[in-house]
């Protein structure tokens, strides 16, 4: 079944418009709304969790009290994390520029991990 379930007819869905799969929006991508991408510098991060408590999209990934990356599948690029980070370890970069960088990196034979991605240690997005 697709995430949207649109191939289903009225006989195949739960009664009363109920959604029985809690947190199913996890499957819905809002990452493609982004104009700017938060790029996280793992070196500078103090794991203070300020970005985490202010993120509207539950997109700061944390494991055992430490930030481990950004969920780019859902992050909409609002920039709150970068604006609020006391360590200034998140940089908002234009997606189009990053794409250009990546394309250039690929042309230069640098493989999938372009310059920008190497810098942003934790691209753990896309759960």
């Amino acid at each position: 079944m697709s995430a949207s379930g649109k191939e289903k007819g009225w006989k195949d869905v739960p009664m009363g418009g109920l959604i029985l799969e809690a947190g199913s929006s996890d499957k819905y991508e809002t990452g493609d709304w982004r104009t700017y991408r938060p790029v996280w510098d793992q070196e500078k991060c103090r794991h203070c969790m300020i970005c985490w408590i202010y993120c509207p999209d539950s997109s700061i990934l944390v494991h055992e009290g430490k930030m481990v990356g950004i969920d780019y599948k859902h992050c909409k690029g609002c920039g709150i994390c970068a604006h609020e980070c006391p360590a200034k370890c998140i940089d908002m970069r234009l997606e189009t520029e990053l794409e250009a960088d990546r394309a250039e990196g690929a042309r230069a034979g640098a493989g999938a991990g372009g310059a920008c991605c190497a810098k942003s240690g934790g691209e753990a997005g896309g759960k």
Partner: peptide, 11 residues
């Protein structure tokens, strides 16, 4: 369960 979700024209 979520009761009272929003349906667009697709549902």
């Amino acid at each position: 369960a979520t009761f009272g979700a929003l349906d667009f024209a697709d549902w």
